[in-house]
Design a protein around this nucleic acid. Structure first.
Lengths: 349, 349
DNA sequence: TGGAGGCATGGGAGCGCTCCCACGCCATGT
DNA sequence: ACATGGCGTGGGAGCGCTCCCATGCCTCCA
């Protein structure tokens, strides 16, 4: 059984998978025609289309992505890049939801998803090389900071790119963001509507545009409610629980009469709540509290946290959709999409 | 500028990236030698190695993965497959931690990570085709159920595979699991040690081995503490919050004298806590509660939840490590690794 | 001194596609 | 009747690598 063909070499077929050529032979057509059918392109006779379709089905043919990538200029792969330099900044479920949305959209388009976590500064620097080697059709970037060079690196490579969030209001790269200003405004309006007068805010890290947006919204909300803006009521946080704790202490020191807090993230709200509790202040009795993200933790807090929901999964889907359009060349102007947020009222306010 | 070479065709270079051949020319050696240097393989003279190294650096050469995959039999890519058929079963942070671990290990080995969420039954069926087309070197599978055919499909393709968790104690495919039995035992021993006598359990879905393991551990714990096993104290859940709620109600109906509950997941503990609370029962005063996962939600519950921590990220790392070894052919026997768990005591018990 | 063996090396062949040119066929126009 | 043009088509070339065979050199042994 081992050597059936004279002195012939043992066949070196690796996968046993049928190739384009075999499909062509079986269908009685040329390679070109099969390729055309598969790519749904140009003009192929109905008859050939049918014959090829049958051959593909019979053989269980699936085009080889590596060969395609090498021959064509497309790879049908997209990279989702997540910088993780600074410890798990964003709330964890956030990424998962983004991934979920991205994956759904890419899956529908039969593109594959390459997940790239950038951990060290070194990895960050080798990024361009990395992208070049991967041969991806486009890049999705999450969690960008003001001075982040990554987006520009990608653009310099001529690769389509879409950011989640923007670095600044003049972001040149396409992005999908949630309405941070609206989030801040709606939170404050809600608080003011419940009779709160001394509404403070705990901001995110000010090297992120999202933090600025929410802060701007906070100010708009105050103005809309006819409340005076008092800079003592603004404390800087960093989106972490511990940052929220520190900011809350600062706030209580500066303004003991504070009666509401808009925290720019649920995590910071958690920290703030702990401090409030420790000081014997009742939530929402003495101080009302609102967060952002509507994360699972918000629901399970005691009291359940009022929070501004972002459509995270939808942002993921939208990002992927934009990227796909960019790759297809249908999106020459970099799109900027801002998705609406929604206030979810619970017992903390 | 446009046409400098007689009637010659315009150059069609797509990326401008240097190729192996160019490196070879610059280093004054043949293609083969460069390839050998890059792959760190066989015997190359010190001199050639150096020349090639310099040329690579000067040109900024990075090997093209697609070409490599096509020519060789390796792709340097690994798929992480996450079935999502039934709504987000596992607690969300779980997956993220797995991904983190996997990514860290793969990144160190310069392998790329393909994330594949399987959503529909149809996608599940096209899985083999998918894998064939992707040309991955191996597959990591998460969240496997008893009758899951996915692992066998992968093996049938001759692909290395590692599971997170196992389908049954006789799992033929390599896997990494946490010590579910130990988790159950330590929780119950802890409860018994605090004087609890009527210790109930809310199990996971019984088509998952992890659920069985934790239940077995629960029984061992009772036995070790000299407590009688009472089947009325066992209620079946499904790892969801709502399942936990239902099971807790059932438990209270069957055994109003229950004084402790071991829930096989934090999420179920959350559900159980809500029911207990609603019935006016104090935790831990009347009923002590222990969960599994040590998820963020456990920390923020009121009272903070005692929980059995699993080394999730480490499981991810270990899985990737095992897979890499399998790919390298160093791991002929399918490895089974069980990682220890650790009880984190908080105020709920 | 001649032959055998080892080792570094160059380069042909080929992985499975896409791209594109050239060919033949047909229906038209004059 | 012949030329014209379109359309479907086949298949060569080539994407950038790895694999492996053949080559030439050098050392070692008899």
């Amino acid at each position: 059984m081992a050597a059936t063909e004279g002195t012939g070499a043992v066949s070196r077929r690796q996968t046993g998978r049928p190739t384009l050529e075999e499909v062509a032979a079986r269908a009685g057509v040329g390679r070109g025609t099969v390729s055309r059918v598969i790519n749904g392109s140009s003009r192929v006779s109905e008859q050939a289309k049918e014959a090829v379709g049958r051959a593909i089905a019979e053989l269980g043919y699936v085009p080889d992505r590596a060969a395609r990538a090498l021959a064509g200029s497309r790879t049908d792969a997209v990279a989702l890049v997540v910088p993780e330099t600074e410890a798990r900044l964003f709330a964890e479920p956030y990424f998962l939801d983004i991934i979920r949305g991205v994956s759904a959209e890419l899956g529908a388009a039969d593109k594959q998803l390459l997940l790239t976590l950038i951990r060290t500064e070194q990895e960050r620097q080798r990024f361009e090389q990395y992208l070049a080697a991967q041969r991806v059709d486009g890049v999705l970037l999450v969690s960008v900071h003001r001075d982040d060079p990554l987006p520009d690196q990608v653009r310099a490579l001529g690769l389509p790119a879409v950011l989640n969030g923007r670095r600044s209001p003049q972001e040149p790269v396409a992005y999908v963001d949630s309405d941070n200003v609206g989030a801040g405004r709606s939170a404050v309006e809600h608080l003011a509507g419940r009779g709160r007068r001394r509404i403070a805010t705990i901001t995110g890290p000010l090297d992120m545009d999202a933090a600025h947006g929410r802060l701007a919204g906070y100010r708009q909300g105050l103005a809309a409610a006819g409340l005076p803006a008092d800079e003592h009521l603004v404390a800087t946080g960093d989106f972490t629980e511990d940052g929220g704790r520190r900011a809350m202490r600062e706030l209580l020191k500066r303004c003991p009469d504070v009666d509401a807090v808009f925290a720019a993230s649920d995590l910071m709200a958690v920290g703030a709540l702990a401090v409030l509790r420790a000081r014997g202040l009742d939530v929402p009795g003495d101080v009302a509290l609102v967060g952002v993200d509507d994360s699972p933790v918000a629901r399970h807090l005691d009291p359940p946290l009022t929070s501004v929901r972002q459509p995270i999964e939808e942002m993921g889907r939208t990002m992927a959709g934009l990227l796909l359009r960019q790759i297809a060349g249908e999106d020459t102007e970099p799109s900027r999409l801002v998705l609406p947020t929604e206030l979810v009222v619970r017992e903390s306010s």
